[in-house]
C-alpha cells in the first residue's frame, strides 16, 4: 500500500530507530504550540492598533464606514449602497448579531437570508476578528456567515466590532476559535482587500473572481453586543 511505502521511505530517510522519539517530539509541539517571535506591527496595542488597521484598509482600497453603535449599521449600509449606485438589496446569513440589528431603520433595503445565490449583488457578513498587522478580516464559515457571501456577490460588506480588532493573525485565530466554541469551522477566511489579479499584462485589476468592492462597517462600541 502506498501509505506504508511512503511512510516507511520517510522513516528510512530519517533514521527508523528514532521514530518513537520523533513521534513524541511532534505531539509535544502540537500539545503546546511554539510562540514564534512576531514583528512589531503584529504587537500593537490600543489606538496604535486601531490606527494601523485603518491605514491598512485604506492602502488596500477598502471602504471603511464607522458607526458609533450597532443600531446604526442598517442605515449606514443603505447610505453606502445608494451613494455608489448599488442595488438596495443584500443577502446575509443567520448570524445572531446581524439578525438582531434594527433592519426596519433602513426600510428601502431588502434583506435576503441564506447562502449566496448566483445573481446576488451584495453580500453581508460579520467578521469575528480583524488583524491590525495587515488590515485582515477573519471570517468563519457556517450558517451564520455562509462563505459564499464573501465570494459570489460583486460587493462584500463586512461588519466588524472595533473591540474585535486584534494585533496579529495569531490573536485573530484565537478569537475565531473562541467565538466558534473551540471548534475549527470548515473554512476560516482571512480576507485582505477585495479580489484582484495581475495576470493580464501585470496590471492589477480588481474583482477577478470574488468581490470587486469590499467595505468594512466598523462598530465603535461593539462591546455592548458581544
Amino acid at each position: 500500500m502506498s501509505r506504508n511505502r511512503i511512510l516507511s521511505a520517510v522513516r528510512g530517510a530519517l533514521d527508523p530507530s528514532h521514530a518513537p522519539a520523533r513521534r513524541s517530539a511532534a505531539s509535544a509541539r502540537i500539545a503546546s504550540a511554539p510562540k514564534h517571535p512576531r514583528p512589531n506591527i503584529a504587537k500593537l496595542e490600543g489606538d496604535e492598533r486601531i490606527a494601523r488597521f485603518a491605514e491598512c484598509l485604506a492602502a488596500l482600497g477598502v471602504d471603511r464606514i464607522e458607526v458609533q453603535a450597532a443600531d446604526e449599521v442598517p442605515a449606514a449600509i443603505a447610505t453606502y449602497l445608494s451613494a455608489r449606485g448599488l442595488p438596495l438589496r443584500l443577502r446575509r446569513g443567520e448570524d445572531n448579531i446581524l439578525a438582531s440589528l434594527p433592519w426596519h431603520h433602513a426600510s428601502d433595503l431588502v434583506v435576503d437570508i441564506g447562502p449566496a445565490q448566483a445573481d446576488d449583488a451584495v453580500g453581508l457578513s460579520r467578521a469575528l476578528a480583524g488583524a491590525a498587522e495587515t488590515g485582515t478580516l477573519a471570517l468563519a464559515s457556517g450558517p451564520g456567515n455562509p462563505v459564499t457571501l464573501s465570494f459570489l456577490p460583486d460587493t462584500h460588506v463586512v461588519v466588524l466590532c472595533e473591540q474585535a480588532i486584534v494585533a496579529s493573525y495569531e490573536d485573530a485565530i484565537a478569537r475565531v476559535l473562541a467565538e466558534n466554541g473551540g471548534v475549527v469551522p470548515r473554512t476560516i477566511n482571512l480576507v485582505t482587500g477585495a479580489s484582484r489579479t495581475g495576470d493580464i499584462g501585470g496590471k492589477i485589476v480588481m474583482g477577478a473572481h470574488g468581490p470587486r468592492r469590499l467595505a468594512v462597517i466598523l462598530i465603535r462600541d461593539g462591546a455592548q453586543r458581544t
Binding site: T134, T136, I173, R186, T187, I188, T192, G193, A194
Partner: peptide, 12 residues
Amino acid sequence: AFTAYTTIVTGP
C-alpha cells in the same frame, strides 16, 4: 504584505 485571500480549510 498579505495575499487577498488566505483560507484555512478543514474537511467537508
